[in-house]
């Protein structure tokens, strides 16, 4: 695999993650517990979509086969997506969505912080811009985690159970493959194993403030680095891709 191919795949991995999380968050529109939160979730969905567009445009450019951001979003199939299993999990209740968001945001925070130092200019500049957004997302959702954890007995139980359930999807975030090895050598991307202690510490601090217990370590799901997903992704894509697939010659 060339550096260029590795970069293409890495951009898809990051881009797909943002795109699918944006999709899940956008499903909350009109359904949040209060109107202010409806706006906040939509805003995060919009930021994630912006990141996805940048990354898919960059991937398309690296590939050099004339595909566009839309071709990559709308014309790839289930086995060609590389987002984490975590972000494709259904929204569940508000606690479940916030737990999913926290686990992802803390990871994104440390990842993008490292990417600002990338020797690859497009990734570094995207990271610098995205980091500001991610800091806001992280602050917003950690405040909710603390409120829910230290709110009522019901909210405490809901957020604790959500965290316990989603924990099994966090191992995968740190998995690396050939793509990582190639790009780490070029100082373009960080070694994910080095992010894990920081990720762990930040979560522990938030859990403590939220009076939550850190979930027990156990079995971890895997697959997305190879494009093997949960059944949920197929439905997301069926919905998202329906118009361009049904009318392939149309432009919108």
């Amino acid at each position: 695999m060339t550096v260029n191919e590795a970069l293409f795949n890495y951009s898809l991995r990051l881009g797909d993650n943002s795109l699918i999380l944006s999709h899940r968050l956008s499903e909350w529109t009109g359904k949040a517990p209060i109107l202010e939160e409806d706006l906040a979730i939509t805003n995060i969905a919009l930021d994630k979509l912006g990141q996805a567009r940048f990354l898919l445009q960059y991937a398309a450019q690296l590939e050099g086969k004339g595909r566009s951001e839309d071709d990559l979003a709308y014309k790839r199939s289930e086995r060609e997506f590389y987002n984490s299993l975590l972000v494709e999990q259904p929204n569940g209740d508000f606690a479940f969505t916030m737990a999913r968001q926290l686990l992802n945001d803390v990871f994104d925070f440390f990842l993008y912080e490292e990417l600002t130092k990338s020797t690859n200019e497009p990734l570094a500049s995207l990271a610098a811009k995205s980091l500001k957004e991610i800091k806001y997302h992280l602050r917003h959702c950690s405040e909710w985690i603390i409120r829910l954890g230290d709110g009522t007995e019901e909210s405490h139980n809901r957020i604790q159970n959500s965290m316990n359930e989603l924990w099994a999807y966090t191992g995968e975030l740190f998995e690396m493959n050939e793509i990582d090895s190639i790009l780490i050598k070029e100082n373009m991307v960080p070694d994910l194993s080095k992010l894990k202690p920081k990720w762990n510490n930040m979560l522990c601090e938030i859990f403590e403030k939220a009076t939550l217990k850190k979930p027990e370590e156990g079995f971890m799901h895997t697959g997305s680095r190879k494009g093997v997903h949960s059944e949920y992704l197929g439905f997301i894509l069926a919905e998202m891709q329906y118009l361009p697939r049904a009318y392939p010659s149309a432009t919108w």
Partner: peptide, 13 residues
């Protein structure tokens, strides 16, 4: 969730 392009999706959101 069914907007036909990423740009259209962003504008609608």
């Amino acid at each position: 969730t069914r907007a036909p392009s990423l740009r259209a999706k962003a504008v609608l959101l």
